[in-house]
């Protein structure tokens, strides 16, 4: 362990992992809240065009990816906020176009070898240069300041946009800000987990944490903690076992999700028993309404609705 920490490149890798581990879930939680969990994935595809442009113009692929990804994110947000019925098709065009364009640009640029695009697709955290680290730190700090500082406002617009508008919150500005923050996060995390897995780090810690939490604040805190732990563990594991860091981090996060969803049921039951909320009768004593009126109209709808909300909560990933 101490041997690992004595290398400069490992120090940088671990620092980058911590920064991304905080940033990605801090922003990702709002995308999950809005049931746009796969938005980060789309942005990762669009960012490939930026990487390709960086190769062609021989500038920094990271800053080019930031630029293209921000433009893509703003486009996606405008399509979403219009409520366009063909919005999903427009987004599909953007995603596939971005990916195809990126590969094409890389292949026509003379500079790039076969391996260089690969390092952006899957991440190459062990080759993080000192100037990369500065970029990651600056962008990450801005994203975290916005995601945590405007927590109540962003929570409101992702919870209920119409209601947020009536509280006088600048909904459109905040939506665009959130889209830009997500785009920046994708490009920041690109070096650590790669464009193809970037969305996983924004989504999986959040859905893992929410197996055990009931409040948004706790979910955000727990998902950030989880993001840091799996990123550090993933990088350490990839050093020890000589495997790529991105897949190691993501598989670790999914393993945590699996464990949490198994213990979620028993834990919720225990919490229920300890907490004061009356659990209701043990057996069903409500009579099934015959042709007349239900004797107990307060009970029947409660049963059905709790049945329908539980799978919905779990379905964060699928949305």
């Amino acid at each position: 362990m101490t041997e690992m920490l004595s290398y400069d490149f490992m120090q940088r890798a671990l620092l980058a992992a911590v920064l991304v581990g905080i940033t990605a879930p801090a922003v990702g939680i709002y995308l999950v809240q809005r049931r746009q969990a796969l938005m980060g994935d789309g942005m990762g595809h669009v960012a490939m065009t930026g990487v390709g442009l960086g190769f062609v113009f021989r500038t920094s692929p990271v800053w080019m990816a930031v630029l293209v990804c921000v433009l893509g994110a703003i486009t996606m947000e405008l399509v979403r906020s219009r409520g366009n019925q063909r919005g999903d098709i427009a987004l599909a065009m953007l995603f596939y176009g971005g990916m195809a364009c990126g590969k094409l640009l890389v292949s026509v640029s003379a500079q790039a070898g076969a391996g260089s695009l690969e390092s952006y697709l899957w991440g190459s955290i062990l080759t993080v240069a000192p100037e990369d680290l500065v970029t990651i730190a600056v962008l990450g700090a801005v994203v975290i300041a916005v995601a945590v500082g405007l927590r109540r406002q962003l929570f409101a617009i992702c919870q209920d946009e119409d209601f947020a508008r009536v509280t006088g919150v600048p909904v459109r500005t905040l939506n665009l800000l959130l889209a830009v923050m997500a785009a920046v996060t994708v490009t920041v995390a690109m070096r650590v987990v790669g464009l193809l897995l970037v969305s996983a780090l924004m989504v999986v810690p959040v859905v893992a944490a929410q197996q055990l939490t009931r409040s948004f604040a706790a979910t955000q805190a727990a998902s950030i903690a989880l993001g840091v732990v799996v990123s550090l563990a993933g990088v350490t594991g990839s050093y020890q076992l000589n495997v790529p860091s991105g897949p190691a981090i993501v598989l670790l996060a999914i393993a945590v999700f699996a464990v949490f969803s198994v213990i979620a049921g028993p834990l919720a039951r225990r919490r229920h028993r300890r907490g004061g909320t009356e659990p209701g009768p043990q057996v069903c004593d409500v009579r099934i309404p015959g042709p007349g009126r239900s004797r107990n109209p307060g009970q029947a709808p409660e049963k059905t609705s709790s049945d329908t909300t539980t799978p919905e909560r779990r379905a964060g990933l699928a949305q």
Binding site: I29, V32, Q33, R34, R35, A37, R152, Q153, F155, A156, C158, Q159, D160, F163, A164, T167, G168, V169, V206, Q210, T213, R214, S215, F216, A217, T219, T309, E312, R313, G316, Q319
Partner: peptide, 18 residues
């Protein structure tokens, strides 16, 4: 409800944003 769990208090608190 939305994609992330939130407590009753958290949801009602958004009404104080104004």
């Amino acid at each position: 409800a939305s994609g992330v769990p939130a407590t009753v208090r958290e949801v009602v608190s958004t009404g104080r944003l104004a």
